Amino acid sequence: MRLIILGPPGAGKGTQSVRLVEKYQIPQLSTGDMLRAAVKHETPIGLKAKEVMAAGHLVSDEIVVGIVADRIEEPDAHNGFILDGFPRTVPQAEALDKMLASKNVQLDAVLELVIDHEKLMARIKKRAADMEAAGQTVRADDRPEALFKRLEAYNAYTAAVGPYYEKKGLLRKVDGMQPIEAVAAAIDKILGEDKS
């Protein structure tokens, strides 16, 4: 099972990824984690990335796709993988497609967790208020202001990735505003259909 999970911050991508990792025994691939591991292990692509980061620049799409290419060759990814948080832009999606095609690897599905931004903001505000009322610390990225900025960035760059995969016939939309169990059941139904 080779999957991409798309959706704005707070849509539940992480929650559903953890469940799919257990169900299919495949790794969830985080580009940030893979990048750090490649740098730490001084792989050829990791050394390139280290040089770029040391110069204070952002790592190119070419390097990130190279890191994904190396990672999906590892034994635990032979039966599939979940990409969560990548690709973030259409050029990244195009580069990922070329790399997968060069390895004769096809995606099974691209799942998009669709959410209502206003309801999500209300949910996050309530959660932050409840945590503060209980005397708990609210993480900076769980604050409504931070979420709003992350949603703006998602809408500006990543929202176009869904339509890109829709044109390819790979996109499957799931209502991310449902309870976690209902989202999981909808995903299971989609993946069951895709496998047949």
Rank of each mutant, 00 (worst) to 15 (best):
R139K: 12
K189Q: 14
I67Q: 10
N79D: 13
Y154G: 04
R19Q: 15
Y164A: 03
Q28H: 03
G7P: 15
N155C: 10
S196E: 15
L96H: 09
K125E: 14
A69V: 00
L120F: 07
F148N: 08
I67T: 11
H41L: 08
I26T: 00
A37E: 15
T31N: 07
V39S: 01
V64W: 10
A134G: 07
A184S: 15
E22N: 12
M53Q: 12
L83Q: 05
A159W: 07
A185W: 10
V59I: 11
L29Q: 09
M1N: 02
G66D: 03
M34F: 05
D33N: 07
E74Y: 03
V59T: 03
V90F: 05
Y154E: 04
A49M: 13
V161Q: 05
I82H: 02
A146D: 00
K103Y: 04
A153H: 04
Y164M: 06
K149S: 06
D33F: 08
S196R: 15
E51A: 15
A134Q: 11
V52Y: 11
L47R: 14
G10P: 08
R123I: 01
K13E: 11
A38D: 09
A77R: 12
H117M: 01
T15V: 10
Y165L: 02
Q28S: 02
D97C: 04
Y24M: 12
D97W: 04
K126Y: 00
L96A: 15
G85D: 06
S60D: 09
V64S: 12
G46D: 07
K126E: 08
I45D: 13
G10R: 14
I63G: 09
R150A: 02
V65S: 10
A159F: 06
K119E: 14
A185H: 10
P27E: 07
K13L: 09
D76N: 06
R127N: 10
V138M: 06
M34D: 04
P75I: 00
K23E: 11
G66C: 04
Y165S: 02
K189W: 08
P87W: 05
V64T: 15
P179K: 12
S30I: 05
P163Q: 11
P87N: 13
P144D: 00
A160E: 11
L147A: 05
E112N: 14
P163N: 12
P87T: 08
G32W: 10
H57D: 15
I82Q: 03
P144F: 01
E22P: 02
A146C: 00
M53V: 03
V21L: 00
I124H: 04
H57M: 15
D61G: 03
P179F: 04
N79Q: 12
R19S: 12
S60R: 09
K195D: 12
R127G: 05
G80V: 02
L113I: 01
G135V: 06
H57W: 11
Y24T: 14
L35W: 08
